[in-house]
Amino acid sequence: MTVASKYEFRKVTMGDLPMLLEWQAQPHVREWWHSDEPYDEEEISDPRVSRCIVSVDGRPFAFMQDYSVHEWEEHHFAHLPKGTRGIDQYIGDSKMIGVGHGTAFIGERMGVLFDSGAPVIATDPHPDNERAIAVYKKLGFEPSGQPQETQWGRILPMLARP
């Protein structure tokens, strides 16, 4: 029996850029998501990254991306098995924080990635982002080493396996 998805994940389009910029300007996002550069058509169509708008009951409220960790030079997860996916996300609508949506939609996407053959899912929250780390631990992620500096900033490497 298949359980119906509570969340809709749809591909980001150029029409989503104003909403993404509005979300990224929110203090709760800006604290951890330091990019305020808008995507361009080339980035949105980059086959290495799947960028999605997450909605519940038809209401967009979050951004999520997953990517092939082996497609970037010197990526801090490049040592992981082929097929490993990295994930990043944020809840843009502050009214949707703290009510379980993050754990639920991330878990749903993890299921899709594992079902598609990903041997490992990696994520890299800032070591001070206690809320994100707690969510990831609930979902089965474990720290994989000490906090470190990367080309994308300071991170705590975390991994989950099926």
Rank of each mutant, 00 (worst) to 15 (best):
A134Q: 10
I133P: 01
K138S: 08
P60E: 06
L156Y: 01
M96V: 13
G140V: 09
C52G: 03
T150C: 11
L139I: 14
Q89C: 15
I53E: 00
T103E: 13
Q146D: 14
K137P: 03
Y90K: 02
I133Y: 00
G100P: 03
W72T: 13
Y67A: 02
D66Q: 05
F61D: 03
W32R: 04
D66L: 05
H76K: 05
T84C: 10
S45G: 08
V49E: 06
H126W: 06
D40N: 15
C52H: 15
G83E: 02
W152F: 08
P127D: 00
W72D: 12
Y67R: 10
A132W: 06
I97V: 14
Q65A: 09
P157G: 03
D57I: 11
W72I: 13
P60H: 05
E142A: 09
F77P: 03
A104F: 04
P157A: 04
P47Q: 02
Y90L: 10
I91Y: 09
T84K: 06
L113M: 11
S94M: 09
P47C: 02
V135C: 15
R51Y: 09
D93W: 04
R85P: 00
E108H: 09
G117P: 02
I53W: 04
I106H: 04
R59M: 14
S116P: 02
G107T: 05
R51C: 05
L156T: 00
T150V: 11
L159S: 00
E108F: 06
R59Q: 13
G86I: 01
H126P: 01
G111L: 07
H70G: 15
E71M: 11
A122E: 00
H75A: 13
H79M: 12
G83H: 05
T150G: 09
D93M: 07
S50V: 11
E74R: 10
E149K: 14
K82E: 15
T123C: 14
P60T: 06
F114C: 02
I44P: 06
S55L: 08
G86T: 01
V69S: 04
Y67V: 06
G153N: 07
E74Q: 12
A132N: 14
K82T: 14
G83D: 02
M158E: 00
R131G: 09
H75F: 14
D46I: 07
K137S: 10
M110F: 11
V56C: 05
E71N: 12
V120N: 00
A122P: 02
D66W: 05
S116N: 15
